[in-house]
Design a protein around this nucleic acid. Structure first.
Length: 588
RNA sequence: GUUUCUGUAGCUCAGUAGGAUAGAGCGUCCGCCUCCUAAGCGGAAGGCCAGCGGUUCGAAUCCGCUCAGGAACGCCA
């Protein structure tokens, strides 16, 4: 379905041409003076220079062409040269009718669906999820859902951190504690046990212990580096150990991501890229893309237009071990081979930006990706505490994600039982839904690239621009529709008609924007635009709700129109929050 | 040091392509439940858009400088 703006722009373009001006000036935008008009065109102001004519004259010429229109009810040229537009009511009503008849609510489906790999999550195995992982998961999940709604094929990959020194450290520590295990017996040739020699709880303790110990004891660290190297060279016992670490860790991670309603199509990790590395290194050397520098293998990525020095991308350390640049490139080799993506989006902490420019340039230079493959880096900002410093627990430690969710839900729960009389189980279940909405909405309503303040008090408050407000609006709609159906009426027969009041018209104008808002959020990889929209829509609805007695309305046609609006508003809100990654309860 | 991001109401944030009177929420103050969930709605106060200069008919937005804060800067990821 065409966007509402397309219809109007089309007409205005025609008018510009008929009046003798270039149609490039016919850009129509939402009005920023809603008291004066609904849409506006500022093209006459821009055109004034070129045509050496007063902008108001141009505007008047254009308006003169548009006195008859299917879409526009009022159009006016205003000093110094604005063109103010109000829409035809029947046109709005028809547009909404068409939206409700479409499964995708009139959202234009991609003509040529792209295959997009979304790389987000990126947790380390053997380490519990903490708040640092929250943003990547929330933002990435939302982008995935938005792109899918637009009709694209999205493959999400968690890209586990399961390679590198951390593995060596874990293995060395396990060896220190249980040297008798078969994994450490080089003479052993049999099968390795299926059961892991540790639980997730133990694993979570092993890594920090080892890491701390390595800082104090150089020979321990060297042993870990050796083990890392051996692992990378295919040491059987260590490989088996890695499999255990992965198993234990992944099943725990799955549980936690599920709680966030975050899912991945692929649970690949850095280790999966390993098989591609030797061949890739050979290719990079032979092609002359990489060279030795101070003993390390690097790819130069400096470009003439750079204002700063970009250090080369390091492929192999001087001891021959691979590092993150290596695995990232090798992962790209695999992705090209298996999925042939049109686009890859990395949702990663913005502090890694330099690494990603190095890595992207290397990939391009060495032709590891096709020229038309788009590589995008969405760097997100830090999640800070109320003090403006990186989020910590009360005693200054790293906050585990589990605990953050638990605390949020707890807070929401206590607010629910303050306000409503509900059963314990319902209150708990509702608290989980609101809690998730609170966290996600709190995060996504900020621009991803900026740092933001995570304030549980504010996010879980039941007032103002919060996730709970959106859910509450939905619950109100559901409640009315429920009662309407209880009266024996069917919502399916409801027909959207002309607006009878100002608040109804405002609501309808808000609904009509859905299409363009989602497209914009997709193109700019900006979920916060959906948050802003969903808030405006909820606002417009609540105002309408307040002024309109829907169930008491006696005029059948009016009531039918109201119900039609409610049903469509519900569908739009639900589609939006689905793209944000949460859902609404039946009651709250 | 170099590079880069950020600076908008007391606080947390929006601000669409350079356009009309810079918008929300929280907090403060004032109204509104005999009526579909008041977790709501209406209203008021609150701004030199960090500062200075430039481009333009017109700047929060573009350019330059200054100030303040954050971040990155080859063998960690």
């Amino acid at each position: 379905m065409k966007k509402i703006l397309d219809f109007i722009t089309m007409e205005i373009e025609q008018a510009f041409e008929q009046a003798g001006y270039a149609k490039e000036y016919a850009k129509v935008t939402l009005s920023d003076r809603p008291d004066l008009c609904e849409y506006q065109c500022n093209g006459a102001l821009a055109a004034a220079k070129v045509y050496r004519k007063a902008p108001i004259m141009i505007a008047k010429d254009v308006v003169g062409q548009l006195l008859q229109s299917k879409y526009i009810s009022e159009i006016e040229a205003v000093n110094p040269g604005f063109i103010n537009i109000k829409l035809e009511m029947d046109f709005i009503a028809d547009y909404l009718k068409n939206m409700s008849e479409d499964v995708s609510l009139g959202l234009e489906q991609a003509e040529h669906p792209r295959t997009i790999i979304m790389d987000y999550g990126g947790p380390n195995v053997a380490k519990p999820l903490h708040v640092g992982h929250l943003r990547s998961a929330i933002i990435g999940e939302s982008l995935k859902r938005i792109a899918r709604k637009m009709g694209h094929k999205v493959i999400s990959d968690i890209h586990l951190g399961d390679w590198g020194l951390q593995l060596g450290l874990i293995i060395v520590e396990v060896k220190k504690r249980n040297p008798e295990l078969v994994y450490f017996d080089d003479a052993y040739t049999g099968d390795y046990p299926k059961e892991a020699p540790f639980t997730i709880t133990e694993l979570e303790e092993i890594y920090p212990t080892a890491s701390a110990y390595a800082k104090e004891h150089i020979e321990y660290k060297e042993a870990a580096m050796q083990v890392t190297y051996d692992l990378q060279q295919g040491h059987k016992g260590y490989q088996a150990m890695l499999a255990h670490i992965l198993n234990v860790s992944v099943s725990d991670l799955k549980k936690n991501y599920e709680r966030l309603h975050v899912t991945f199509d692929l649970w690949k990790g850095e280790s999966d890229a390993q098989p591609y590395i030797p061949e890739m290194i050979a290719y990079l050397k032979e092609g002359g893309y990489a060279h030795l520098d101070q003993g390390a293998l690097v790819i130069d990525v400096q470009e003439d237009t750079d204002t700063k020095e970009i250090p080369p991308c390091m492929i192999l350390k001087s001891d021959g071990a691979s590092l993150y640049g290596t695995t990232d490139l090798a992962t790209l080799v695999e992705r090209e081979k298996l999925y042939h993506p049109d686009e890859i989006i990395y949702v990663v902490d913005k502090r890694q930006e330099l690494h990603f420019t190095q890595f992207f340039r290397s990939a391009r230079k060495a032709k590891i990706v096709r020229e038309e493959t788009k590589l995008r880096f969405l760097g997100f900002g830090t999640m800070n505490g109320k003090d403006g410093k990186p989020f910590k627990t009360r005693d200054g430690g790293v906050m585990r994600l589990e605990n953050l969710i638990k605390e949020t839900n707890e807070m929401v729960y206590s607010r629910i039982i303050e306000n409503r009389e509900v059963s314990e189980t319902e209150a708990r279940r509702t608290a989980e839904m609101i809690g998730l909405a609170a966290i996600k909405y709190g995060d996504l309503s900020n621009q991803a690239s900026k740092d933001y303040v995570f304030d549980v008090e504010r996010f879980t408050s039941f007032e103002g621009n919060t996730g709970a407000y959106i859910l509450y609006t939905l619950v109100r709609i559901k409640s009315i529709l429920h009662k309407y159906i209880e009266k024996g009426k069917s919502t399916k027969e409801a027909k959207i008609g002309r607006a009878h009041t100002e608040s109804q018209r405002i609501l309808m104008l808000e609904m009509v924007k859905y299409n363009e808002v989602i497209l914009e959020a997709y193109e700019e990889i900006a979920p916060h635009k959906i948050c802003a929209y969903v808030y405006d829509l909820a606002n417009a609805f609540n105002r309408f709700y307040h002024e309109t007695k829907i169930l008491l309305e006696e005029n059948e046609e009016k009531q039918s129109g109201y119900i039609g609006l409610l049903v469509l508003t519900q569908r739009i809100l639900e589609a939006c929050i689905d793209m944000l990654g949460f859902e609404a309860p039946e009651r709250m």
